[in-house]
C-alpha cells in the first residue's frame, strides 16, 4: 500500500510525461545523437557510426556555414531595426487617429494575414527584372533605362528579401508598440509638456521609456521569427544566386534534404538554435530592465 501511495502523483503525471517524452525529449535526443554521426538518409546504417564532434568541427571550419550564419545575423539586425523604426512610426501616427482607428488597425495588420510563402511569391514577381512591378515603375518614371537585376545581384537580392520581410512583419512592432502607447498613463506626458518639453523631448524622455518594454517583446518574437527565416528566402532566391543569399536554415534544409546529410544538418541546426537562444536571452534581459525602470506592474 505504501509504495502505491507514493506512486500516485507519479501515476497521475504519467500521461503527460509519456507525451512529453515521445514528442519532445526523444526527438531532441535523437537529433542531437544524429548530429554526432555521419547519418545520411540514403544510408540508414550510418546512424550507428559515432564520429563525435566531427560534424560540428566541419561546420565551424566551413566558410559557407559562417557566411550563412553571418548573413542570418545581418538579416536579423537590419530587418529588426527597420521594422522597429517603421513600426514605431506607424504606431505613433495610429495613436493620433481619433476616428476609425479600429478599422485602420485591422488594415494595418493585413500583411500578417498572408502566408510567408505567398509573400515570397508576390515579392519575387515584383522584383523580377523583366516583368516585375518595381523595374517597370522605375523605367516608366524614367529613373533608369536598365533592368535592375534585383534577385540576381547578391546585395540587391538581400535588399529585396529585407523588403519582403519588413513589409510582412512591421505590423508586429506597430501593434505591440501601439498597445504600449494606449496603455501608458497620460499624466506624465502632460507633466512633461508643462515642464517645458518640446514634443521630441517628451517622446525621448517620457514616452519612449514607457513603450520600450513593448518594443523588446516585439524584438524577442521577431528575432525568433527571423532566426528561423526560411520560407520567403526559399521562394524568392532559394539561397542563390550561387549561395549569395544563403541563410542558416536554407543551408540546413539543403544539407538535410537535397544532400541527405542529416547528421551534418542537425549539427548546423543546433548552432542556429544557440544563436536564437542568445538573442532571446539578450532581449529578455533588456525587457526586464526596461520594465523595472518604469516600475511596471505587469
Amino acid at each position: 500500500m505504501k509504495s502505491l501511495r507514493l506512486g500516485t502523483p507519479f501515476l497521475l503525471l504519467l500521461p503527460a510525461i509519456v507525451v512529453l517524452l515521445a514528442t519532445v525529449a526523444l526527438p531532441l535526443a535523437l537529433s542531437f545523437y544524429s548530429s554526432l554521426t555521419p547519418f545520411k538518409l540514403t544510408r540508414p546504417e550510418t546512424l550507428w557510426v559515432f564520429v563525435g564532434a566531427r560534424n560540428y568541427v566541419n561546420a565551424f571550419t566551413d566558410p559557407v556555414f559562417w557566411a550563412a550564419f553571418g548573413r542570418t545575423v545581418l538579416l536579423l539586425t537590419v530587418a529588426l531595426n527597420l521594422e522597429m523604426l517603421l513600426g514605431l512610426g506607424l504606431a505613433l501616427l495610429m495613436e493620433r487617429v481619433t476616428r476609425g482607428q479600429r478599422l485602420l488597425r485591422t488594415l494595418m495588420m493585413f500583411p500578417m494575414m498572408f502566408s510567408p510563402i505567398l509573400v515570397g511569391f508576390q515579392f519575387k514577381f515584383m522584383f523580377n527584372d523583366n516583368v516585375g512591378l518595381i523595374n517597370n515603375a522605375l523605367q516608366s518614371l524614367g529613373i533608369t533605362d536598365a533592368a535592375i537585376p534585383w534577385l540576381i545581384n547578391g546585395t540587391l537580392a538581400f535588399i529585396a528579401i529585407v523588403t519582403a520581410e519588413v513589409w510582412s512583419s512591421t505590423p508586429v512592432f506597430a501593434i505591440l508598440i501601439l498597445a504600449g502607447l494606449l496603455a501608458m498613463p497620460r499624466e506624465p506626458i502632460e507633466a512633461a509638456k508643462v515642464d517645458g518639453c518640446t514634443p521630441w523631448q517628451s517622446f525621448r524622455y517620457v514616452t519612449w521609456p514607457f513603450i520600450m518594454p513593448f518594443a523588446y517583446i516585439a524584438m524577442t518574437i521577431r528575432s525568433l521569427d527571423v532566426g528561423r527565416a526560411y520560407d520567403i528566402v526559399k521562394i524568392m532566391t532559394d539561397g542563390g544566386p550561387a549561395r549569395r543569399t544563403e541563410l542558416i536554415w536554407t543551408l540546413v534544409a539543403r544539407t538535410a534534404y537535397s544532400d541527405a546529410r542529416m547528421g551534418a544538418a542537425n549539427a548546423m541546426a543546433y548552432a542556429s538554435i544557440a544563436l536564437s537562444i542568445v538573442f532571446t536571452v539578450y532581449f529578455f534581459r533588456k525587457l526586464a530592465a526596461a520594465r523595472t525602470q518604469i516600475a511596471a506592474e505587469w
Partner: peptide
C-alpha cells in the same frame, strides 16, 4: 491629482 511623476 495622480502626481504624474516620471516612474523611471
Amino acid at each position: 491629482q495622480s502626481y504624474a511623476l516620471y516612474p523611471h
